[in-house]
């Protein structure tokens, strides 16, 4: 399967173009790093690729077809700040099970303590909450995961743990991964291919 950005451009209203004619393709089974300075539009590009935002020009294609607009989406985005990506009035268990029901082995591999599921988001640390968000996005029909600075706010140990699990799952399920990060060392360590965002458009 292939996720493809076909000459995507974006601007808000009549402002300057954030980026123009960005082309990129991501295959299932690949781990691609996306590098670029802050404020260059990487995050917006990711949101468009995942169908969270619309492009001003150009199209996103999944195996030659448009992204579905109903049902569980095969392209999932994981945000930098998990506390914003969850409803503060829901308990962690309800949050995690919103799209599907992760089984015990999934919880185990993500090192999610079942006790957390009965707590409110404000009672969990950033790393714990991010694991809940990752479990939520890892339904069997997920084909691509876009990780936008997924572990930037976490300490090194938590970061290494989370990536180990995600990479193993991605490999065993043949998912495609896009890793957006400013950390060159992280990208060098885990990615099979690196894209410089400035070279896209």
């Amino acid at each position: 399967m292939q996720l493809e950005a076909r000459s995507i451009s974006k601007r808000y209203g009549e402002e300057q173009w954030l980026f123009r004619n960005a082309n990129a393709a991501l295959q299932t089974g690949e781990v691609v790093g996306l590098l670029g300075p802050s404020g260059c539009g990487k995050s917006t590009f990711c949101r468009i690729l995942a169908g969270y935002d619309s492009s001003t020009e150009g199209e996103v294609m999944l195996d030659g077809e448009r992204l579905p607009s109903k049902g569980y989406r095969p392209v999932q985005l994981i945000f930098q700040h998990p506390e914003r990506a969850v409803n503060p009035r829901w308990k962690a268990g309800a949050i995690m099970n919103e799209g599907w029901q992760p089984d015990g082995s999934m919880l185990e591999s993500l090192e999610i303590n079942p006790e957390w599921l009965n707590r409110w988001p404000s009672e969990l640390s950033g790393g714990e909450l991010q694991r809940i968000c990752i479990a939520r996005a890892l339904a069997p029909h997920t084909r691509f995961i876009l990780a936008d600075e997924m572990t930037t706010m976490l300490d090194a140990i938590t970061q290494a743990r989370i990536w180990k699990t995600v990479l193993e799952l991605a490999a065993s399920r043949q998912m495609g991964l896009m890793v957006v990060s400013h950390d060159r060392h992280l990208i060098d360590r885990i990615c099979t291919r690196v894209i410089d965002f400035r070279s896209l458009g």
Binding site: I157, A160, W163, K164, D183, H185, D188, R189, I190
Partner: peptide, 15 residues
């Protein structure tokens, strides 16, 4: 030590 060794450039090790 675990924190140091977990950095991507130092082995990305998991305690």
């Amino acid at each position: 030590r675990a924190l140091w060794l977990a950095l991507p450039q130092n082995g990305f090790a998991i305690p």
